[in-house]
């Protein structure tokens, strides 16, 4: 089946039961999207489909065929990191790094969705991404920074 990922067409033979997350990680070697629970309860597999953030673990790859998929690997422009990626480094918005891909994929959308107006909103709309290291205040700081930074790509 064809999968359009990060602007590139991949053709891969997959059974219908294969999740988009496993397709990325086990079949396409795109391991930036993380498997944390495989149950829709942690957010570390967050990717964008047709511009919206969704969970790759509860999406079947076959159902995503024909749609535009963006993963963490699709954010940076060569060595030029996305402003949110830079802000996550600058504000130390992660520790172990395992939830980070999902956090960043959500964080960019939180701003785009218009849900980053207040800290309370950011907290609420980032709550689908669990960070067990509890870097939450720093994640909010990174999002505030990108929100406030004029000319940020987000």
């Amino acid at each position: 089946m064809p999968l359009q990922i990060n602007g590139r067409q991949h053709v891969v033979v997959l059974e219908p039961r294969v999740s988009l997350l496993d397709a990325l990680r086990e079949h396409l070697d795109l391991t930036g999207s993380k498997k944390g629970c495989d149950q829709g309860t942690c957010g570390s597999c967050t990717v964008w489909i047709d511009g919206r953030r969704v969970l790759a673990c509860l999406t079947l790859a076959v159902a995503a065929s024909g749609h535009e998929i963006v993963t963490i690997e699709g954010l940076a422009d060569g060595d030029q990191l996305h402003p949110m990626q830079r802000a996550f480094i600058e504000y130390d918005a992660f520790q172990c790094g395992y939830c980070t891909s999902g956090q960043i994929m959500s964080a960019i959308k939180v701003i785009e969705e218009g849900n980053a107006g207040t800290d309370e909103d950011i907290g609420e709309f980032m709550s689908g991404n669990i960070c067990r290291c509890a870097a939450y205040p720093n994640i909010r700081a990174a999002i505030r920074h990108v929100r406030d930074e004029a000319g940020g790509r987000s």
Binding site: R52, L58, K109
Partner: peptide
């Protein structure tokens, strides 16, 4: 749920 799940 969460925004990701609500989008789905």
């Amino acid at each position: 749920a969460s925004e990701q799940l609500r989008n789905m």
